[in-house]
Design a binder for these strands. Structure first.
Lengths: 346, 346
DNA sequence: TCACAGAATGAACACGTTTTCATTTCTCGT
DNA sequence: ACGAGAAATGAAAACGTGTTCATTCTGTGA
């Protein structure tokens, strides 16, 4: 009954809880770890006292000994970008429910990988890493992860063959873009579009490359001439300017397929407010992603949906499965895409 | 010369670096901490070998002993919300440059505080916390921080007096909304607006409350009748519906002041596409924030600018100053607002 | 040459956990 | 009542670093 420590300076420790509950410090640790053997009444008492003392196990100490930081590193070029921000949001919610926290890092906005940043991030010991910077290979990423296994975003169709083979262990999220792109091209063709342009995203982005190749392939299969390409970088402003150039300097188009929805917004605004063309009467526009803003009335965009919740669920599954089976061979998840028809085509 | 350890399983440790460099482990620690005495040549050698071995001090261990996690907790109700995502982006960049990382947490979207989440976050030992959930008081926040000092977003003018007095130590970011709101009302009045409506944000948000009170006060001073209030929650959809109700059920308005830019977008789209009214000819619209999307041609919004970079710089200053002076009295930073005139007024 | 201050150095400790491992206590069938 | 297996328990050893403190080295002025 030596309750001398009335004012616990700073933070309560397991020792203090143990002292008050008349148990050993180990028991306190066990009380907070589900799959350990501890008499239920004892566990209850400890948890009650812990709550009184506002005690939570120190995650730094826990990480040090267990080798698990419960942190998931997320590398993004641009948090504001709608697609990314929506994914970060859903990912954070999902990870939080599983006891993890999102550790955010920003890299260069041209979608190229920054080794210095990877080294910096590595210092925080993330259990897993999700890189939006999709031009990085598992090989590079793995070099900067100690025990974590990289997750690789893979576009199986229309992909260059240079990344098969001797890649180190990694998990894959396969994205099937064919269905969505085929439906989009079919729709445009149905409305009699002859000259389809592709408004690209950032040049170094894998997603952009895969999308452009898939579009070319589908158009060729359907007997259409290859698309005119206008260079953007996923941003509104670049898309706006590229669209103007396409019509003022270039040959124009009667349909534009944008690499992402935000780019499509730039296209639409350039057509309507700068070039005084009507959408969809004069020019049809299709985007890619189906972000939340795409149903806003000013745009009301027809777009290839890449379901965000589905994608986040798949990512979380990959992360958890890997953490539970550190030495298992590579896991895979596969996502499909489909067209969402709104007002910018017909 | 006992170089037996050729393949360093997992992660390199200070011990290994020390062994290779023929120095003590303490020297390695010192090599990575700037203000310690160590012969320059020795430090150089250690850093070189560290790089070879891909070594970085383990932050968990470092945090355990130094009490500094170098993590900044950020609590957000909605990452996708443009204003928040832009702040997170800028904040992450700025913190990264100072050696910190952003730890993201999501709370309920109604802008109310969630004690469970605070306890959860506390486990990660953040050195500082920035809560976008502005209805939480320093008192509540402080209870969940061990050594960190909360940063309080304060609206000095038109603020209820209930938070003065015995608050625990905290730092303040004062936001002066008067200038921006006055300029906005003056502009509307100049264009002959008679019935000004306020489209609110989330009810529990301090920012929303302060904005509405400020608007009431300024309008009263200028001899205008109090604004009609349409209830939104900062989202596009709620603003869209509230605007329709305002005109279909309510008495309408000839100018609408929205609590944030995204809300203003909803207002504009409802007016144009649902109510078939012209902006700005029939109804004038003003927003609040000046987010990146506000200059998009479809909206081209006149808005009260709350400079994001300025705000982030101020927050980072507060964080760093506090970390360097843990026991100093409360620090303060002050921000102003101003009107940015675009196309939605006249 | 001597004394002395300051820089450089390393041994030992501390940080708060989880994890082994050996020991003790409980439970149940005979 | 007895033994065996399972469950519960606590002592001690990690985990990888920063920090203190006493010691050794270095250079300077008298």
């Amino acid at each position: 009954m030596t309750d001398t420590e009335q004012a616990p300076r700073g933070r309560a420790t397991a020792e203090m809880v143990a002292a008050r509950a008349q148990v050993s410090r180990v028991a306190v640790s066990r009380a907070f770890n589900p799959h350990t053997s501890l008499k239920p009444e004892k566990r209850e008492l400890i948890l009650k006292i812990a709550q009184e003392l506002n005690y939570t196990p120190d995650r730094a100490a826990r990480a040090l000994v267990s080798g698990r930081s419960h942190l998931v590193g997320v590398i993004v070029p641009d948090v504001c970008s709608h697609w990314e921000s929506q994914e970060i949001d859903a990912l954070t919610t999902a990870l939080q429910a599983e006891g993890f926290a999102t550790l955010l890092f920003k890299t260069r906005t041209d979608y190229s990988m920054d080794e210095q940043l990877l080294a910096y991030m590595r210092g925080f010991n993330p259990d897993s890493v999700i890189a939006f910077v999709e031009n990085v290979k598992p090989h590079t990423l793995a070099r900067f992860l100690d025990r974590a296994v990289p997750i690789y975003i893979h576009y199986p169709q229309a992909e260059l063959a240079d990344d098969a083979g001797d890649e180190p262990l990694h998990d894959r999220l396969n994205v099937l873009q064919r269905d969505g792109v085929e439906q989009a091209v079919a729709l445009l063709q149905g409305f009699g579009a002859k000259r389809i342009a592709y408004l690209s995203g950032a040049e170094k982005s894998r997603a952009n490359g895969a999308r452009e190749r898939m579009l070319r392939q589908v158009m060729a299969e359907r007997g259409l001439a290859p698309p005119v390409v206008a260079r953007g970088d996923f941003s509104y402003d670049a898309a706006y300017q590229a669209t103007i150039d396409l019509f003022r300097v270039g040959e124009g188009a009667d349909a534009i397929f944008a690499a992402n929805d935000v780019g499509a917004f730039g296209v639409i605004d350039a057509l309507r407010h700068e070039l005084k063309l009507r959408v969809p009467e004069d020019v049809k526009v299709i985007g890619f992603d189906d972000i939340a803003q795409s149903h806003w009335k000013s745009y009301n965009l027809t777009t290839v949906k890449f379901d965000l919740d589905e994608r986040v669920r798949a990512l979380v599954r990959l992360i958890l499965r890997r953490l539970n089976n550190p030495d298992a061979p590579g896991f895979q998840e596969t996502l499909n895409t489909r067209l969402v028809v709104r007002g910018t085509v017909g």
